[in-house]
Amino acid sequence: MLQDNSITLAIVDDHPVVMEGVQKLLESKKHIQVAGCFTTGADFMAFIKSNKVDIVLLDISLPDVSGIDLCKDIKALSPATCVLVLSNHSERSIIMQMLQNGASGYLLKNASAAELTNSINEALEGQITFSREVKEIIARPSASALRGIPQLTRREKEILHLISEGVTTAGIAVQLSLSPLTIETHRRNLLQKFDVKNVAALIKIAVQQGLV
């Protein structure tokens, strides 16, 4: 925390009701100074270039940029600024992505006043902090973890590796001396085994499970 015990906080959210509510909530916290409220990522990035912000309460749905990308930009420009997500998005994958991009914590907008102030303090102390509901979401295993690693044949592993490198069906057929029809059959089998609908999702899970 700052030596004079005063904390500068900014709010980035395009819902006026949320901004007003959070500001009102923090009025009683004399050590927290609200430096500004911003409805777009661009406005906040312009502000932080010339102003010190100790902690920012960041929404994910903004009119000009995703909070997921903005979080990374904030940390690149001002590594000392704590990013505390305050959002309605409760998807586990989004929570994990925000943490990977440098967020210090994640709260849903239905968090209590006590949870918010507690999380602000914890984030400023260098902790990773969550509201109670977010802790429960994180504790649940992801869908891919629940599915486990599919059993693949040697040929399927070869084809999966080539798909991940961006080789086309025709290209794989040439490399493996198989017909394109056979490759397509293997591709369908891989999608089925991983329980996904497209190649992008297939590659994502394969990477997560260390198969490619």
Rank of each mutant, 00 (worst) to 15 (best):
S90E: 07
S90R: 11
L108P: 15
C82Y: 09
H89T: 04
L86I: 02
Y106F: 09
D73C: 06
V83W: 09
D73V: 07
Q100L: 08
Y106T: 00
M98W: 12
Y106P: 06
R92W: 03
V85M: 07
Q97L: 05
D73Y: 14
A76K: 15
R92T: 00
I74M: 09
T81F: 09
M96D: 06
D69S: 14
I68Y: 10
M98I: 03
I74H: 03
Y106W: 14
L84E: 05
S78I: 04
C82Q: 12
N101F: 05
L84A: 02
A76G: 04
S93D: 11
P79L: 10
S87T: 12
G105Y: 15
M98S: 01
S78N: 07
D73P: 00
L84D: 05
L108C: 10
L77F: 09
P79Q: 03
A103I: 14
S90L: 02
D73S: 11
K75G: 00
Q97N: 11
L70W: 06
C82M: 09
Y106V: 02
G102W: 13
A76Y: 13
S104H: 14
E91S: 08
I95K: 10
S78D: 04
Y106I: 01
D73G: 06
N88M: 13
I95F: 05
I94F: 10
P79E: 05
Y106D: 02
E91P: 08
C82D: 06
T81C: 09
Y106C: 01
E91L: 09
L86W: 10
L77H: 04
L99I: 14
C82L: 02
D73T: 15
Y106A: 00
T81D: 08
I74W: 09
L99Y: 08
V85F: 12
